[in-house]
Amino acid sequence: MERIHLPLPDPAKKPAALILGILFGFLLQKGGVTRYETIIGQLLLLDFTVLKVMLSAVLTGMLGIQILLRFNLVALHPKHGSFGSSVIGGLIFGLGFGLLGYCPGTAAGAAGQGSLDALFGGVGGMLLGAAFYSEIYHRIEPSVLRWGNFGDITLPELLRTSRWKVVTAVAALLAAVLAALSLAGL
């Protein structure tokens, strides 16, 4: 079956992205995850709002994308990774995450609800961090970023099994974690 080419034509992409971004920001704020207290509460393992939002988003999106893939309406875009990139970069991110109390998307949202620490400290710091990365990129790219390189492999490819089986197993796992959180009253 031929892949149906649905993506919008270029001139329509920015207006559509603006509307999708507004909806995303609206949802993040209504979900409470643009609040410093909610994110730190999650990292201190006292408030599981962030985990519940993320796991239910992954569960819904994973099933939705799987159905859309079945009808050739979407294409996957898994990111490349390596231990040096994903794990070391992820840990650097994490150390900052606990100190800042926002991530890039939620800091942008927090700025919109009036949290000036997210705007001046968060957004300002993230721009500096991104600029610093552009300075060191040519040095770490041939070394650290290639440690344990595994490319853009997905779990079904890694496990050499069908996508449907992994989707079903991960969906069951995420649903179980969400149910357990709910039963535990978290």
């Binding site: 900052g96 993230m126 500096l128």
Partner: peptide, 12 residues
């Protein structure tokens, strides 16, 4: 924290 988040997100 923002600096590390910006650096780490691009790194990862």
């Amino acid at each position: 924290g923002g600096f590390l988040v910006g650096l780490g997100s691009r790194w990862a």
